[in-house]
Structure formats: structure tokens, C-alpha cells
Design a protein around this nucleic acid. Sequence first.
DNA 1: TCAGTGAAGTGAAACGTTTCACTTTTAACT
DNA 2: AGTTAAAAGTGAAACGTTTCACTTCACTGA
Lengths: 330, 330
Amino acid sequence: MTTIRDVAERAGVSVTTASYALNGIGSIGDATRKRVLEAAEALNYHPNAFARHLKKRKTHTIGVFISRFGGAFYEEILEGIHSIILETDYELLVCPESRSTRRMLLHRQVDGAIVFDSKISDDDVLKLASGHFPIVVLDRSLQSDFILPLLLDNAQGVREAFAHLYGQGCRKIAFVTGAMDSFDNTERMATFLAEAEGRNLHVPVYPGNFTEVSGYAAAMSILQSGDLPDAVFCANDQMAMGFLRAMKEHGLHAPADIAIVGFDDIPLSRYLQPSISTIGTSRFEWGATAARQLIDFLDTESPFQPHRIPTRFLPRESSTLRRESPSAAG
Amino acid sequence: MTTIRDVAERAGVSVTTASYALNGIGSIGDATRKRVLEAAEALNYHPNAFARHLKKRKTHTIGVFISRFGGAFYEEILEGIHSIILETDYELLVCPESRSTRRMLLHRQVDGAIVFDSKISDDDVLKLASGHFPIVVLDRSLQSDFILPLLLDNAQGVREAFAHLYGQGCRKIAFVTGAMDSFDNTERMATFLAEAEGRNLHVPVYPGNFTEVSGYAAAMSILQSGDLPDAVFCANDQMAMGFLRAMKEHGLHAPADIAIVGFDDIPLSRYLQPSISTIGTSRFEWGATAARQLIDFLDTESPFQPHRIPTRFLPRESSTLRRESPSAAG
DNA sequence: TCAGTGAAGTGAAACGTTTCACTTTTAACT
DNA sequence: AGTTAAAAGTGAAACGTTTCACTTCACTGA
């Protein structure tokens, strides 16, 4: 572990001079600077990040906190964030859930954070956020000058989807929920039920948890009841996939027997057979917006600009009963 | 920014006592400990990670360095790594390419690293690695006691693929390369050419760079030459996708006109039409193995166990001319 | 009563940087 | 030669922890 002290010694200068030379600041003679740089090179010196960050109060790094990497969901958001990072001089650190006390531990190891992990409590986020530590949250609604909730406009897409099903004559529509502690699920369900209520429709609700398996299970309990709906809205695509799998096993077809709509537009949804009607957004833009706003805040202290990320319904095979017009493709 | 000094003051104890109490070590009376904990809670105190890590020489964190998040490739590796992390008390930090001096900056911010980013030079990896900083590399071959190269067994899969094509009677086989500075590409190409040579076949080589577009371009130059091969091996699936797109645009079909084989088994390859024959591995296991070995090294100093990650050929529609036996499915 | 013991608590050095405030050297003018 | 200013370089404090070595104190048992 060579330190700046070793470098200074070898170059025959003081630690101060070595520091200035290495950072290219202060007034240091060319010859001296060169000698220091050579010493550093020769000793394979790398500054200790902790000592440096302890002294300077900034790390020029933003942290992204997610629960996991899979799920075909985070990837595009991370790419969006990364695309903005590449335009700046910031670093990016992505931290998934871990057993130890990540939340506390990583605090102040980054200058700001983007949070997309329901395992992190609202309370922790509220406590951590400050003018020195702004946070963008992608999965919840929180009120603070230093927190920017950047949420999907769930209502918009759900309304479009409902209109599509209703417009096709579906009147017996069931809803399969996601995890009940999810903000998005709550909003999707509330919107859907409100739309139905507006048309005097009763919507049976089946509990799920966003997993493929829970969609399958919901389908099983519906199919076994014998009383089939003509359409089912699943709170995400994974569950729609599970639902479709169960239908196939029972010799039923979407949309002929039951029209299916999901949410998220995961990459697979387009390629399955039938392709899954779903509600999508540009996740890349979502991530990019989050990163942009966070960095703007850090650089210029400009206050956060709350807004919703637009979503839109993408009709595909799993719910389209008859093609209205030949040119109307999703 | 409340510090441990503030906590100590509020609790009416020394900084030392506060530190011991907060860390649950030393001999501190129950009443005192409680007072310290309450003070910390009241002040919303979080230890400064930099000061802590500067003093203790360990961070209990491993870093993963990748070039980007997309490409349908890293996701599963990251999930594999994460799965191991969850079993331990380590933290995980994932760091994609950035404009600033990430390599130096992150050094010592983690206890060990997993590298999968060709933009990081061999030289840097060699210099950084040491008994205090072990590195697992997933994309290159390097010799050091403190570096573990965990590479795909490219040869195995390529040989199987070649045998498959040759066994079907293909004799005029072209190769589309990946990026020339890629270790994997080099190995895939070398194996393929060696296999061909062994059967006295000449293989025309078309340059690509692993992108879908470069596969498309390679196809265009082959198709325009008018002299069609009966099979093409692409060094990865993205290029195979591009190749197939070009074929479709020319009214050609795989495998009837040209049999196509890719490499990587990206999720999409299974769902496209035709589905793409490819060479796959368990990327989840790959990541898990990397994490396991790194953590073993850190915990027990047990030396690295070099080995290759097995790959296997997955015959699908794009290359299977006739089904040999009804039961032989991939 | 007192040495001995263990529990409870503390002072201060150390980790490796950066940077403020300062001194020394050099060069440029009269 | 003497003055001044700028350039080059340095000492030491600070960042916020942890932890070694130490003190204080109350209690035990003889």
C-alpha cells in the first residue's frame, strides 16, 4: 500500500507538493511535477479514495439502489442513467439489496441517490434526504424538497387499456393484483376499479405478487371456478405470462376465450405467442430523466421538477378481438 | 452532518464510548449504551463511511466493473453474483464505465473486484491486483496469483456447433467475427478455423464487431457477392440477428437457404422466428462462481482455482436442416 | 483494611489525504 | 545592489472514525 508519503519521499519533496503535483493544482515547477508523477508511476501509487473523500466532502458519484438486477426491468433504466453519467464527470455506483446495513453504510459514499427498491423504507429515505444528499425515488411518492418522486403515470395507460377492452365489448373483466405494498400496483388497481365503477361494472380481484407463478395461480383459481371472465387485466406482464401459461394448459386461447392485458412491456411480451397487450413506457428515458435531474440538483441546486413519466397502451394479440382497421398496429 | 462527536456529547460520554456503544463492542454499561443509541437516533446519526473505512482497512464490499448494463448479457451474471452476496455479509457495488478515472478512484473502495469490461486495460488489472486486492476477470486471460480468469470454454461449444453443421452436410461455411480485441472472439474464431482446417475446408471470414448492425452488414456483403455459403457462424447472437434480418429482406430463409448459428444464448434468441441456434452457458452460475471464489479468497486466503465455464451447443430452428430423431430436442 | 480483579469508561494516536497559511527561492525591475 | 512580486515549495491542521493503552471505580474475599 504505497501512500502519497512514499511518493513524496521518492521524489524528494514534501507531501504537500506531491499532492499538488498529482492533482495538477497549486504552483509547482515543471521539473518537480514530472519527478512526482514518475515516482507515483514507479511506485504504482493510487490515492486512497477514503482519505480523499473524507477530506473533500464530495465524491462526485451518484448511487443507484435497486433490489436486484433481474426482472427484465432495471436493465433499461440503468442504461438510461448510465447514458447521462457518460456525458458528465460523475461516477455511477449501483447497489443491490444486501444482508448488511447497506442503507446506512452507503450514506455519504455518494453525493446523491436514485432509489428503486421497496425494501428501503420511506422513513429511511426521508431521514437521509437533505440539501446535501438529494434523492430521486422511482417507486413511491414522498413529500420533501430534497426528494423527487419520478413515477409512472399508471392511470393514463390503465385507462387506455380499459377503454380498449370495454370498446371491444368486454363486460366481465377480472383484475390480478401485484404486491399489495407496491405503489404502482395500488395505483393501477385503483384506476382500473374506478374506470369499471364509472361503467357500473363489478371487477373481481385476484391477489398476486408480480411473479409469473402468482399469475399462474390466479388463473388456476379463476379457471377452476368455472365462471370465466371475458377479459383479465394483470398488474404486470410476468403475471400475464403465468396466466397465459395456465390458459394454454387448459386448452384455452387468448384473446378468443379470455382477453389478456399486462403492464410493463417487458422485452419478452412482444415475442411470446400470443404477443401480450401491455402498457409501456420508455424506461431508458425514465432513468435518464432521473439521472439528469439528480445531477442538475447537485450541480446547480436547481429545485426538483416533479412530473409523471407517460405510459401508453400497446395493443397486441393477447387482447385484440378483431382488427378494427388494417393499418392500426401496435 | 452529525458526527459521532455530537452523539457522544448529547449522551454525555466520550467519543470512544460512543464508538464502542454504536458498534456493540467494548465493555459498556447497558444504561450508557442505551443513552448513546438514543442520542444517535435522535440526531439521525449515520457513521461516515469514509472515515470508518480509512481506519479499518476493510470495506467488506466487492466491486463489479462492467462496461454497460444492456446487451442482455450482464443481467444474469449480475444476478448470479448477487445471489452469492445475499448469502454473505458482503456488500456489492456495480460500476459501469464512466468518463472520469474510475479505475483509480474505486481502487481500495472495495476489497476485491470482478472485471468484465474490455475498456479496462490488462496493465491496470495487473498493477491493481495484489494479495490485498484480488481480482476475478471474466473477459481475458491473465497470469497472476491474485487474478482469477474465469473464462467461457468457447472451444467446446464451437466444436459442437461445427460438428452439427458439418454433420448436416454443410461444406461451405462462413464466419462472421466479433470485435477483434475480444478474447472470446479470438478463441471462437481460432477454434472454428482449426475445425474447418481439420476437414480441409476453407472458411471465408467477414469482419464484425458483435453488434446487430455489423451482422447485418456482413450479410449484405455476402449476399451481394452472389456466392452464397450453405452455413454461417456468427461470433454472437446479436450479429446472427442482424444476419437473419438481412436474409429476410432478401427473401431468404434460415436454415433452408443458409443455416445460421450464433453464440451467447441471449434471451431473445429462443423467441425469434426462426429461433436461433446458439451456444450457451449458465451465466447465473458464471457470476455466482466468480463471486464465490472472490469471497473465498478474501475470507480464507485460499488460492484461486482456475477453471473454464462449460458451454454447449443449443440446436434450434435457424440451423437444423432435418430433425434427425423426433426425440432429439435442445 | 487492603490487594486483586473485572467492569466501565477515556485520551490520544492513527488511517491518508487536502488545503490554509506561511516561508523560501527566483526573477524582474529600477 | 536593492526592492518587489511572483513562483515554488512546505508545515501542520483537519476530515470522522477506530482502537490501543490506560485510568477509575466498585466490589470481592481474606
